[in-house]
Design a protein around this nucleic acid. Sequence first.
DNA 1: TTTTTACCTTGACAACTGTCAAGCTCCGGG
DNA 2: CCCGGAGCTTGACAGTTGTCAAGGTAAAAA
Lengths: 211, 211
Amino acid sequence: MARQATGAAKREAVAEVVRDEKFNARRIELAEAALETLGELGFARTSLREIAQNSAFTHGVFHYYFSDKLDLICCCVRHYKAKCVTRYDDVVVTATSRDELTEGFLARLAATLQNEARMHRLWYDLRSQAMFEAAFRKDVLEIDKSLEAMIWRIASRYAEFGGKRPASSPAALYALFDGLFQSALLKHLAGDKAAIPELLDEVRRLLPTVC
Amino acid sequence: MARQATGAAKREAVAEVVRDEKFNARRIELAEAALETLGELGFARTSLREIAQNSAFTHGVFHYYFSDKLDLICCCVRHYKAKCVTRYDDVVVTATSRDELTEGFLARLAATLQNEARMHRLWYDLRSQAMFEAAFRKDVLEIDKSLEAMIWRIASRYAEFGGKRPASSPAALYALFDGLFQSALLKHLAGDKAAIPELLDEVRRLLPTVC
DNA sequence: TTTTTACCTTGACAACTGTCAAGCTCCGGG
DNA sequence: CCCGGAGCTTGACAGTTGTCAAGGTAAAAA
């Protein structure tokens, strides 16, 4: 009987794990749909109904999978994080020289700005929201840290190729690149065709002086 | 009769100018009230009624002085600009040495972060909004340019004291300081007591290397 | 097969939004 | 004195919002 009970308990536990996984998978699916609309409209103008309309579901589902709107958006932020903090890592790994690293980095930078502008303006939007809404702060600060580390990996590798060490702190380096990217993104979205090449030039000039 | 007509026309023109000035003064007064609420709640959560409730007026007035909500917020942005782009100018003018400039700059930086955090998080919020709302872009890009020039004045003066020229472009310098400030602001708002001193340390270390 | 459960839809709710028209008040000019 | 209009308030409007409960459906469990 003890064996039977244990068997039943095990089966139940497995079933629960499966259920949880399905639940979580749907959460992420919904968060991904939400990210689409958020990237299009921004935090201020995005409603649950609008999100639902741009997805395969109806607005009620979101309340089944998320406790409220903040919960949904927090999930979006966390999911976004996983996607973006490894964006340049393969370049860092595969590059075998300064030039290769530079060109790989710049190419990906340009592609990101060109193809994922909407996702990135959303990131800046949500980071600003975190200054007002405490619920976002923890996740946003974590992402910021991850991005800082990502930049630091690039800079360290670059310096390494020159037998040097980066000339500034991780915080300053991240601030610099983030600031440049943000500015370029705004100009790009405003229709400035020169925004991307100007960013590339600036970064190309800057890399040897900071690393 | 010609003289009479001219006189009447003149009087009328003067009256119109006075009326326009009064109109504009009230617009600014309302924009200032709106800035208070915007700084408290952020763009996403601020309604006209909320703005009115935190002011001496009722919600209808805003429609009398502004064509719509965007018009009001654009006016806010423009008014904010006039305030903030001259924040460090007297330090630049009065400083007579590198140290004096550094300490003046750092002191004002700390004071700004401490006392005007709400206004600055609003700036970052609205700059992000500009990535979604085209109506904001022109003013935001203008302010960004003014801020870049402001940083450039400080850096140039600093370099001048050392008989040098700034080592980077105005855009890169602004990106750097803006990025550092933005990061420090978020940490400060999140309750991180070390945010301000860390920013000051970072800037103190950075100034001699970039100028 | 029957019953239960997970999942999703539908519709309703109260609150809130930007907008605006009607009307009030009070002051300066006739 | 009164009268017109500038300046402001009030209240209403249509639409939108987050939230949630009631109900349906299909798959799993019994």
